[in-house]
């Protein structure tokens, strides 16, 4: 006899006449849930291991730097805020590559997206909210070490206005970077539904392309063909980040920094690319939802 444990109890069906949230509140709930999922909160214990290990790896060097500065009384931080983020880019890229599938591949792979889209949230709001969750998640990932460094700098009595200026520049750059990386990895994860291949795809987009661009920039710099290197910098989120950081004197040194006109192009390309990725996400969700 099957399903006999599922006896239907006749205790009467109750109506729900209570308040119902509007779209904005529902989106906010989705946003918070997504953000928590990227750190494994609200899911199984095993899914917390990787994000927290990566976060620890990204933060530990900052803690060491703070320790060194405070104890030896250095006059300035050995690494600026923007440069620190640049140095740990490998870990940040891994985090984005590993956690984007949690938000973007799962619902498409198991087709539970249909259940979401049959509810008041539209596919556009859903996709944008998910993208915001990942962006915030990445920002948090970058800010833990950044603000740790800042606290350490204040503790060591370094010049406040200097540190604040460096911090502000870094924060603006990190906002731009987080939005772009979230868009790129999100789109890749929504297209390649098996988590493993989405990760490889994101790694290629973030790490391999970055490496290639850096090599090209080194070579063009050595060959006095800087223009090509600057143009090549448009091809990778990290090279956009470090290029802009160099142009804005945020403490990062690149082979071929962009001039002010190029810097503007960098910003525009980043924004446009992010927008295109988000639009792609909306289209993907809508398409799979209607199947």
């Amino acid at each position: 006899m099957s399903e006999r444990s599922g006896v239907i109890h006749d205790l009467g069906y109750r109506r729900y006449d209570g308040p119902r949230d509007g779209t904005a509140t529902i989106a906010r709930t989705l946003y918070v849930t997504g953000l928590r999922h990227t750190y494994g909160l609200g899911r199984s214990g095993k899914s917390k291991i990787l994000p927290f290990i990566l976060l620890a790896m990204a933060t530990l060097p900052a803690a060491i730097v703070v320790g060194v500065v405070v104890l030896t009384g250095l006059g300035s931080l050995p690494v600026t805020y923007a440069d620190y983020t640049n140095q740990v880019q490998l870990v940040i890229s891994l985090f984005a590559a590993a956690q984007a599938p949690v938000l973007f591949s799962r619902d498409l792979r198991h087709r539970s997206i249909v259940l979401y889209l049959a509810r008041p949230l539209s596919s556009s709001v859903f996709a944008v909210t998910r993208w915001l969750s990942l962006t915030t998640s990445l920002l948090f990932f970058m800010w833990v070490p950044t603000f740790l460094l800042f606290a350490g700098a204040l503790l060591a009595g370094l010049d406040k206005s200097d540190q604040l200026e460096g911090l502000l520049k870094a924060v603006v750059l990190q906002l731009l970077l987080a939005a772009l990386v979230a868009g790129v990895t999100g789109l890749i994860s929504s297209v390649s539904l098996r988590r493993g291949f989405a990760v490889v795809g994101s790694v290629v987009a973030l790490i391999v392309v970055s490496g290639v661009v850096t090599s090209v920039q080194a070579i063009t710099n050595a060959q006095d063909a800087d223009g090509i290197g600057v143009a090549a910098g448009l091809l990778s989120p990290w090279s956009i980040f470090s290029g802009l950081a160099d142009a804005w004197h945020a403490g990062v040194v690149t082979f071929t920094p962009p001039g002010s006109a190029w810097a503007l192009a960098y910003v525009l390309v980043a924004v446009v690319l992010t927008a295109l990725c988000v639009l792609g996400l909306v289209a993907r969700f809508r398409k799979v939802g209607s199947r």
Partner: peptide, 29 residues
């Protein structure tokens, strides 16, 4: 890069990128 510059500059890509990154990625895939 070999066409644009010379072989030695291009070769640096291999121990820098091809060997430590592309080879293992292919193996993983």
């Amino acid at each position: 890069i070999t066409a644009l510059t010379d072989g030695d500059a291009a070769f640096d890509i291999l121990p820098g990128l091809g060997y430590p990154l592309v080879l293992p990625l292919v193996a993983i895939l």
